[in-house]
């Protein structure tokens, strides 16, 4: 197990190398010039050239790349071109809203979707199942900006129960923090609830036909125990896999949701940085995300072994 963990952690390195090359090239080969944007509309070509030299953009691509990689190796993600703040600080200041939204979404989705999937499988073919399955299709089909504005219209504008947008840090009170998080979380959750419900249902349907479920019933165990302990425990692997993939996709999902609800998170930061061609910031965020992604995958693999004693590394 220790060897497995070590090997998997080491695999972060090649992933980061490949990701950094792709990010670096994609940004630089795309249209747009940060120097021109920074120098302003009335800038002369000389001013733009000076700006480019100042930012180190006049070097050749390999030179720029090596320079950047050496920087990263020292734990320095560089400075933002637009604000001149260190990227690490920028990211840290935007971390809380994203972290709060992502974890709330994942926890909420699992809490709603797993029981729903179990119920749908248990009552297969009844109205419960149809409702859950039909709901899942709608959940898949609705884009986040539609759900978001719909929720805002109903709960914030009409009923006035919840704030329209914005974010209050946890340090300024738990209740305001939660109130501002509810609508974004609901918005972002729909698709994950749909996804996890479908997978839970399918996995449960398969397991409910297994012999040991019959054994559990033959032991006179309550149906609740048969379903959640015996059947769900054995359905865990596909559900965990999809939750892992879900978390990875979530990193992309926050971009839209944060824009809809004006949350000052990493998603918004990414959009702002891309628009401004702020290379170091975009690069830094993507490197961070890919590192997180590898760690999540590792966590999912480790959790397999926790849920299923037949799996060992």
């Amino acid at each position: 197990m220790a060897y497995f963990l070590l090997r998997r952690l080491m695999s972060v390195i090649p992933v980061l190398v490949v990701v950094s090359i792709i990010v670096f090239l994609a940004l630089r080969l795309g249209p747009g010039d940060p120097a021109a944007i920074l120098a302003g509309d009335s800038a002369t070509p000389d001013m733009i050239a000076a700006m480019r030299a100042h930012l180190g953009l006049d070097q050749s691509l390999p030179q720029q790349f090596i320079h950047w990689v050496i920087q990263i190796a020292h734990g320095d993600l560089g400075r933002s071109i637009t604000s001149n703040q260190p990227v690490t600080m920028l990211v840290a200041s935007r971390l809380e809203p994203t972290l709060a939204l992502a974890s709330a979404t994942i926890i909420f989705s699992i809490l709603i979707a797993t029981p729903l999937g179990v119920l749908a499988a248990w009552r297969r073919g009844t109205w419960v199942d149809n409702l859950a399955s039909g709901g899942a299709v709608i959940g898949f089909a609705l884009p986040a900006f539609v759900t978001g504005y719909l929720l805002v219209y109903v709960f914030a504008l009409k009923l006035q129960w919840l704030p329209v947008q914005g974010f209050i840090p946890l340090s300024e009170g738990f209740w305001p923090f939660i109130r501002h998080l509810i609508l974004p979380t609901l918005t972002l959750s729909t698709i994950y609830i749909a996804l996890i419900t479908r997978v839970t249902r399918a996995s449960m349907l398969e397991i409910l036909g297994e012999d040991f479920v019959r054994t559990a019933r033959a032991k006179g165990l309550p149906e609740r125990v048969v379903l959640f302990r015996h059947a769900l425990g054995n359905s865990a692997i596909p559900i965990l896999s999809v939750i892992g993939i879900g978390i990875a996709l979530l990193l992309g999902g926050v971009v839209v949701t944060e824009s809809v609800f004006s949350l000052p998170g990493l998603g918004r930061l990414t959009v702002e940085a891309v628009v401004a061609r702020d290379y170091p910031v975009v690069q830094g965020i993507i490197i961070l995300f890919s590192g997180v992604y590898v760690l999540i995958n590792l966590a999912v693999d480790v959790s397999y072994a926790i849920f299923d004693p037949r799996i060992s590394y």
Binding site: D211, F212, T215, A218, K219, G220, P222, D308, R310
Partner: peptide, 25 residues
Amino acid sequence: RMRELRGPRMAMIFQEPMTALNPVM
């Protein structure tokens, strides 16, 4: 009532003990 009877009054063993036991407990 059936659930109360299964276990204390009647019990069953099956053909294939590998699949009849829960693999993760």
